[in-house]
Amino acid sequence: MRVHLPAFLLLYLLSCNSAKERTEKVLALREMNELATVEYSVTKIIRANDDQTWYKIGDRKILMSCRATLRAGINFSKLDASSIRIDGDEIDVTLPRATLQSVNLRPEDIKVEYQEVGLLRTEFDAAERDALMTRGEAQIRAGVPELGILNTAESNASLFVGNFLRQLGYKKVNVNFSDGPQVPKLK
């Protein structure tokens, strides 16, 4: 038994280190029909700490900054024959309301500006920093309606479609938006 114990220990340690299986999902292609008309670049500071208890010795706080790009536009797939009315050199187009098309926080645009971790506290690891940024991302998504990005997207869409149709020879172009509230599309 005394002889076998180190061998068992070694086997156990080796088994703990066995290569973990990696899985990758198959790439999925999706057809789209959207016109992106505006991109907002926003910045946000992420401030987090967990030093709120008396029995934890030392601070543990982090300050991160990030730049996010938000894109909005209109979904052309909702456009059909009934959305366009032509009368000679006059055209009326009814576009669908603008939606938020993407929120993008590029990895290189996320920076740890400052962190303070007491001697007896654990450092923030990659998973924890990502979890914090995920919550920051949720705060950015929640703040989208206040930015007025959808209004800008509709103005730009109206301008672009109007100019394009004038280029095609229409003398009078009317661009309207369908009824219904602007709804920020989530992912």
């Binding site: 008309t37 992420i46 967990d50 730009n156």
Partner: peptide
């Protein structure tokens, strides 16, 4: 301890006008 995230404002830095026809995504 659960990390507490403070509410901070979002600042708009730039606004770009686009005209991109998005046709495929992977």
């Amino acid at each position: 301890r659960p990390v507490r995230l403070e509410e901070t404002p979002m600042v708009v830095r730039e606004i770009h006008e686009l005209a991109q026809l998005v046709t495929m995504s992977a």
